[in-house]
Design a protein around this nucleic acid. Sequence first.
DNA 1: GCACAATGAACCATAATATGGAATCTTTGT
DNA 2: ACAAAGATTCCATATTATGGTTCATTGTGC
Lengths: 253, 253
Amino acid sequence: MSANGTQAIDRAAELLSLVVLADEPPDFGHLVSDTGLPKSTASRLLQALERHRLVRRDGEGAYGAGPLFAAYASRHDPIDDFIALAQPTLERISAATGETVNLAVARGQDVTQVAQVDSTYLLGTTNWLDVDVPAHCSALGKVLYAAGLIPVPNRTLEARTPHTITDPRKFRRHLDTVRAKGFAQALGELEIGLDAVAAPVIGRSGDVVAAVGLSGPSGRIKNKLPQLGSLIKEHAQALSSVLGHQPRKEGAA
Amino acid sequence: MSANGTQAIDRAAELLSLVVLADEPPDFGHLVSDTGLPKSTASRLLQALERHRLVRRDGEGAYGAGPLFAAYASRHDPIDDFIALAQPTLERISAATGETVNLAVARGQDVTQVAQVDSTYLLGTTNWLDVDVPAHCSALGKVLYAAGLIPVPNRTLEARTPHTITDPRKFRRHLDTVRAKGFAQALGELEIGLDAVAAPVIGRSGDVVAAVGLSGPSGRIKNKLPQLGSLIKEHAQALSSVLGHQPRKEGAA
DNA sequence: GCACAATGAACCATAATATGGAATCTTTGT
DNA sequence: ACAAAGATTCCATATTATGGTTCATTGTGC
């Protein structure tokens, strides 16, 4: 039962979501079976959506997102959409941990933090969005290095703390570990007493497009690293699914 | 009067289009006045659209495109959307002239043709999508040079025909003319007997993002250059409007 | 601080729309 | 030539969407 007086719109919107989010363009039969609507009802609703440029139909009858979506996409900076899509994930990580949560992308050879949810603790971290962080000292940076989105330097790296990895060969081996584990950690490497974990976000194409991570004081982070590592990986994978990434199925030929 | 049995969807879709295509995020009052709907009807429809993630509302009550649009945008190559949006314009130019119509963008230092509508004449031109054309000999290339999207060479240019401009300083002055007139022409510069005109397509940001042009044999093109120049400019400006470009208003402060 | 206007959501009697089974049409396969 | 499948159209009617009215909240002017 729909909210009062919007059943037709609810049904049309359900059809529209199926079309827009489909991995393969669905045909009429799939839309009928997926929604359980009678054929005449589905036909009428789809024709209305097509008339309003919300869906389009190709020559073989398969449905896709219509020109209104293309118009939207052509008018907006994709990073804004990505940030908007990622925001619920950042908030879930924050809700689960209470720590500062960040999203970062590679821009040129730098790590740019594009979104943040602040810590719920009084002892948290700064607003990183305005801070120029050396990538080799941060978990987010290590993820983007490991993915090859920024070139790994061959020179001796800056020692921000005694814990910072400065030898480039050691740093490369460290990135191998990041790849193997599926997440990065930075323990007092940027600042004594500040720890972080981060994991890669994978786009529809299968490539890493961003890193999502959390940070806080060592006293809260250090003893929970395996759990926090798993948590950040899971949330990063969930966000990757929202972006359309289909993880390789086990047992595939 | 709507098509049979889709009035509610028609109304909801009208609201949605207004929101998605608005230059500034509209508030509830604007949507009511723009559509003529009673407040209670508009409120119910907008709540349904919000519930289905087609619109979102910011803290101050202004409406914007919802997460479904962001999800779409994050999953699609923007050039595909741009080509889809441009296709009706190319078809209108083709209908008006019968000549081969192309859309081109700058990729690196090259001109890439991304869409074409073939000539309706038997004597037309080739499928340019697969042809690597020297940019200085083509109307499309001159538009992209003039816009600064590809760097203007300082060396002597390749002479493809006796009409090709090869002196770089003369070529730069020629590009000044292109900017002044608002469209480019290439008369037998790529191939004897082959003429073309092209105009810039401007994105929402105000920058040139593409060139749209037409080409054909000199016998059909040469005598109509002023008309074809005006036509291609008008259609390029219409496409720019679809992309959200707002031309500077005359008499503005 | 108060009166009033503006904004936007909720209510509900009822007008009118959206429904969906059946019929029909078109295309494809045998 | 005929059957099957897919999709659209028709139309009696069940049910929904409508919109005038009311209400709650917020903003503004005095």
